[in-house]
């Protein structure tokens, strides 16, 4: 464990808690893409299959449980909670995210480190996580006005991915055997997707204006 990875995990945890806090306190999911949340729940479900079989550390198991419970409860809130579901804008959240699932699965079948069920599901979760933010970014472009919590949520997610890239660079230089091209490339693609959001986020923060993404 290195500081970049710990900071990345904490930032990722913060992003999920910010979202849960927003939904739970103001009982609203305005501006949040249910599709992205469903993709994240699928990412965790397929990545943490080894939750009960491979024990790595208490930290690892605990964090996996937190991410699983929080991602599925966010989906539950938006779909079933009688008040929150009313604020879900399904007419705007129209990204056909199922079209992302199949290509990621096929790619995982072709490009993976080992052709085993667990490894293919893990690789699938990596590719899916790389594109899971797309419905949310599309929704932000559409709704234009981004409320603070949603902006912070996407910002924290981007920060978590950026910290993970620093973690991989650190591990590459400190652990001779640590080479995971698949992880690195899909992680890089994912981080690049946030790049333009970051640009507009900092612009609005610097000029102290409301965050707006160009149509």
């Amino acid at each position: 464990m290195n500081i970049f990875r710990l900071a990345g995990d904490m930032t990722h945890l913060a992003s999920v808690l910010v979202l849960l806090l927003k939904i739970h306190t103001i009982k609203s999911c305005a501006g949040i893409s249910l599709k992205t949340q469903e993709l994240y729940a699928l990412v965790f479900a397929t990545r943490y299959l080894d939750l009960f079989t491979d024990y790595i550390s208490l930290y690892n198991t605990l964090m996996k449980l937190i991410f699983l419970v929080s991602s599925f409860s966010i989906v539950w809130y938006i779909r079933h909670h009688k008040i929150v579901r009313r604020s879900y804008d399904k007419d705007q959240d129209t990204f056909r995210h199922y079209f992302l699932v199949l290509p990621c699965f096929l790619l995982a079948l072709v490009i993976n480190e080992k052709f085993t069920v667990k490894e293919i599901m893990w690789t699938f979760s990596l590719y899916l996580e790389a594109v899971a933010i797309l419905p949310q970014l599309v929704l932000l472009q559409r709704t234009r006005n981004i409320d603070n919590l949603t902006g912070q949520y996407v910002f924290l997610l981007g920060a978590y991915r950026s910290l993970y890239i620093l973690n991989w660079i650190y591990r590459y230089f400190t652990e001779p055997h640590y080479v995971h091209w698949i992880t690195w490339i899909s992680g890089l693609v994912q981080t690049l997707l946030y790049a333009d959001f970051f640009y507009y986020y900092f612009q609005s923060w610097k000029n102290n204006v409301k965050l707006e993404l160009p149509a």
Partner: peptide, 10 residues
Amino acid sequence: NDESDDHDEL
């Protein structure tokens, strides 16, 4: 090396 199959990152 068996390090590759156990993914220790979240």
